[in-house]
Design a protein around this nucleic acid. Structure first.
Lengths: 195, 195, 195, 195
DNA sequence: CATGAATGAGTGTTCATTCAT
DNA sequence: CATGAATGAACACTCATTCAT
C-alpha cells in the first residue's frame, strides 16, 4: 500500500505556504515552485492538491472573510448595554486582526483581487449588513435620526478597515488594540453627549 | 518647447492608461500591450516613454502619495480653532479621495506593491508624522495625556484609510464625505466631553 | 512602421515546417520548438500564427482531404468510355500520391488522428460517396448486379488507400504509378470478361 | 509454475489494456495511468511488468506482424490450383483483419510508429517478400512477363492494406470479406483473360 | 518618431517514473 | 507483490522587450 497521508492536512499546509509566499512576493511574483519550496514539497505535488495557481488564489480569497462574523453577531445580539456592545465588538475585531496567522502583507493582495472578480458584490453586501447592524446600536446610544447613525456606523466600519491597513504599515508604531479602544471610547462619548 | 510639452503630455496619457489598466486587470494581469491599446498607441511606443514595465509601476506608486499633503499642512498650521482644523482637514481628505481621477481599484494594487519593496518604510514614516501632527490638534481639544491623543489621532488616520476602502467597495452605499464628516464631528464631541 | 510580412505566406511556411517535423518525430514527439527551428523562426513566433499545437495539427488534418476531389469528379463525369474513366482516374490518384509535397510518413499520423476525433464521420461519408460513384462506372463495364459492383468499387478504393501505404513503406520497390496502372487494367479485364 | 502463468497472463492483460488505450487516445495521448486504470491495476503495477512506456509500445509493435504469416505460407506452398491459392489467401487475410481482437484504430498508431524507428526496414523487406511470393502465383495464372506480375502482386498487397484502412474507417459500409473476395475474383478473371 | 513582428527567457502544467508503505 | 503519493524533467505557452521598417 502506498504512503498514507491526510489529504486535507497537506492541502492546508500547501495553502499556508502559498499565503506566506504570496505575502512575500505578491500574487504575480510568486512562482508555483516558490510555493512548493516553501511547503517543502516538489513542484508537481502542488498540482496533486490544487488544479492550478488560480484555484490556490481563490481558496485564499474565500478563506479570509468569515473572520469574526459569528462573534460579532453574538456580541451585537447580547443583552449588554449598547456602548458595551460597541466596545466589546471592536475589541474583538482588533484582536482578530492582530491574531491573524497570515502575514498582513497578504491583505492587500486579497483585497486587490477581491475588488476585481465576482466577489466584489459580496464585499459590499457584507459591508452594508454590518453597517446597518452597528447603526442600530449607535441609534440606541445616540437616539438621533437614522441616517446620521448609519453614517457613523459606516465610519466605524471604515475605522476597523483602516486599522487593518495601519497594522500592515507598521505594527510597532500603531498598537491597534489600544488605538481602536481609545478611538471607539471617544466616539461613544461623542454619541452620548447630545443626549 | 512645444515638443517637450507634447512629450510630457503623452507620457502622462500613457501613465493614465496604465493606471486604468492596472485597476482593471491588476499589476500582474495587465500586459504592456493592454496598456498600449488603452492609451491608443503601439506597443513599442510605450517603451519610448518608459524604460520598462517596472518604471511605469514606480511612477504610479510615487505619484499617489502627495495628494493633499500641502493642503493638510496648511490647514493644520492655520489659525483656526482646533476642532475647525480637524473638520476642515478630513473634509479635504474625503474630497480628495472622491475626486481621484484614477479608478479606486488601483488603490489596493498600489498598497499591495508599496508594502513590499523599499517604500514600505516611507509609508510608516509618513503615517507617524501625520499622526503626531494630528495628535497635537487632538490634545488642544481634549487636553489629556499625550499617549491617549496619539491613539486617537492614529484612529483618525485609520478612519481615513478605511474610508478609502469603503470608497472602493461601494461608492453608492457609503457616501464618504458625509460619513467622514459625521464621524469626525462625533469624535470631536467625544473629545470635548471630558473637558 | 514595422516589418511588413505576408501573414498568409508565413503561416503556410510554418505549417509546412510543422508537417515535416511531425513526419520526422511524430505528433507527440515534435516539440513546438522543433517546428519553430525547422521553420527558421523563434518559438514565440509560431504562436503569432497558431493558437496552439492542437490548431496546427487540425490545420494539417483538414488540408489533406481535398486532394484530387474535383479532378476525380471531372473525370467520372466526362464522356469517355467507362474503362478509360477508371484508368484515367487511378492514374491521377496515383500521381497525386506521388506528388504529395508532404513527406509520406505524415500520412499515418494524419489517419491515426483522423480516426479519432470528429473527422472520422467525414472520412466514411466521403469513402461511401466515392465508392458509389465508382460503382456506377464499374456497372457500366461489367453490367452485373449492383451489389457486386459496389464491392469491387470498394476494392478499388481500398487499392488506392493501400497504394498510399506502399508509398510510405518503400517508394523504390513499389513504383506506385506502374503498379496501380497494371492492377487497374487487369481488374478492368476481369470486369469485361463475363460480358 | 502457476506463478509464472499468472505473471504472463497479467502481462498480457496489461498489454491488452494498453492496446485499447492507445487506440482510444493515441500513443502520445495515453498516459500510463490511463492504461493502468483500463487494466484495473495501480499505476505502479504496470512498472512491475514493463520497464517503461516505450517497452509497452515496442511489444505491441512486434506482436502485430506475424498474424497470418504461416498460414499464408502454407497456402502458397500447398498443391492447390494457383487461382484457388489466391482466393484462399485473401480470404484468410480478410478474415484475419476482421477477427483482430484489438480495435482497428490502433493500426494507424502502429504504422505511424513503425515507419519511424528502426522497424521501417523490416516492413519493406516483408512487403517485398510477400509481393514476390504472390507474384509467382500470379505468373502461374497469367503467364506473362515477370515485371507485370510483380506489379499486380504489389497491387494485391496494396489491396489488403487498403482493406484494413476501410475496416477502420467504416466497418458497416465496407464488408471487407465480401469486397475482398469479389475484387480478387475479378482480378483473377482479368489475369486469365489474355491466356 | 511610431509601430507591431519577432524573440526567448521564464512559468505554468503534465506525466513518466520511483519508492515508502 | 501492489499501490498511489511524490517528484522533477520536459514541454506548452506567455509576454516583456527589441528593432527593422
Amino acid at each position: 500500500m502506498p504512503k498514507i497521508v491526510d489529504k486535507e492536512e497537506k492541502r492546508a499546509e500547501i495553502l499556508d505556504a502559498a499565503i506566506r509566499t504570496f505575502a512575500k512576493k505578491g500574487t504575480g511574483g510568486a512562482k508555483i515552485e516558490d510555493i512548493a519550496k516553501e511547503a517543502g514539497v516538489g513542484k508537481g505535488t502542488v498540482y496533486l492538491y490544487f488544479k492550478n495557481k488560480e484555484e490556490i488564489l481563490q481558496h485564499i480569497l474565500m478563506q479570509k472573510a468569515p473572520a469574526g462574523k459569528e462573534v460579532a453577531h453574538k456580541i451585537l445580539m447580547s443583552s449588554k448595554k449598547p456602548e458595551e456592545k460597541l466596545k466589546e465588538l471592536f475589541k474583538v475585531l482588533a484582536a482578530d486582526i492582530e491574531n491573524q496567522s497570515s502575514p498582513p502583507e497578504i491583505q492587500f493582495e486579497i483585497f486587490a483581487n477581491l475588488v476585481r472578480g465576482p466577489h466584489k458584490e459580496n464585499l459590499s453586501i457584507e459591508a452594508t449588513l454590518f453597517r446597518d447592524t452597528v447603526a442600530e446600536i449607535v441609534q440606541q446610544i445616540k437616539g438621533s435620526d437614522k441616517r446620521d447613525c448609519q453614517m457613523i456606523a459606516a465610519g466605524l466600519l471604515s475605522l476597523i478597515h483602516g486599522v487593518m491597513m495601519m497594522w500592515v504599515i507598521d505594527k510597532e508604531s500603531f498598537p491597534i488594540r489600544e488605538m481602536t479602544e481609545k478611538t471607539v471610547e471617544t466616539l461613544i462619548d461623542g454619541l452620548k453627549k447630545e443626549k
